[in-house]
Design a protein around this nucleic acid. Structure first.
Lengths: 144, 144
DNA sequence: GTGTGTGCAAACCTTTTGCAACCGG
DNA sequence: CCGGTTGCAAAAGGTTTGCACACAC
């Protein structure tokens, strides 16, 4: 069973229909699983496959995929655009972090955990962390 | 010298004019220094003082204050609105984190550092962290 | 067949911009 | 005074929505 068909199974399982458009969008997302994408980006990519698709469908599909936890919204920019990335199937949790180089604007994804920090927060504030969003800004190795 | 006049000094020092509108907006921000605010929120608050102010002025002022590091943009929601909070004058660095309770939606600000984690990132990726943005989601003490 | 999903266009909402008038230094 | 700043209104840009038609199950 491929990565793609597992996501398709998630759509079917949720009771949603596996339409041509959803398949096309899903394929483009999986083929670009190492990138961050916006509705506009996806729309452009999918239009190469099927020029009749509408931007509204892309927005509605992103909303569905986010609800199904196929993709997640990542808060990496404040330019008024929503960006997403795929949630890996064998990702044990929803944690992933970004290193953004303020010199070359490169975005590096890392998976290192914050377990000890979260234990500390639990201890100090009685707050039980279930998810998080971490972006580190600075200069990457090649820009230093 | 009050907190307010220190911020006013920062405006003058930057070469910008200390207009009536900027003073009014600054006062409202300082009076609500424990909250996160949007342009709309500020606009509503300032209109109570001076009903002739324009929303465009609020946006332009937020842009100026952000550049002067009087306020910072916080990525706490994806509702298409930009939120800000005041940067405390005696804040040693620009680090501050949010705990967002997914049950009651309360936002708790904390100041605990991530120094050891950043040292680890430097070691492993050669990435030099100068700033960061961390939001932890979960359940607060009273919601558990 | 039935109801969910789609494409289109209009509407919406936040933010930005052009411009003439205004006012702070 | 002079140039930065403002208020207004229009525009821009991203996202949402109403509706008739299409299609997955």
């Amino acid at each position: 069973m491929t990565q793609l068909s597992k996501y398709e199974a998630m759509i079917v399982k949720s009771g949603s229909k596996l339409t041509k458009q959803r398949k096309q969008i899903l394929k483009v997302i999986v083929d670009h699983s190492d990138e961050h994408f916006s509705a506009e980006t996806l729309y452009d990519l999918v239009r190469h496959i099927d020029s009749s698709i509408g931007i509204a469908t892309v927005y509605r599909t992103l909303e569905l995929f986010e609800k199904l936890k196929i993709i997640r919204n990542v808060k990496i920019k404040n330019d008024g655009v929503n960006y997403y990335d795929v949630i890996d199937l064998d990702e044990q949790n929803h944690f992933h972090h970004h290193l953004i180089c303020t010199t070359c604007n490169r975005i590096i994804e890392i998976a290192d955990e914050l377990e000890s920090y979260e234990a500390f927060i639990k201890e100090k504030y009685g707050f039980n962390v279930t998810d998080h969003d971490l972006t580190l800004y600075g200069t990457c190795a090649s820009c230093q």
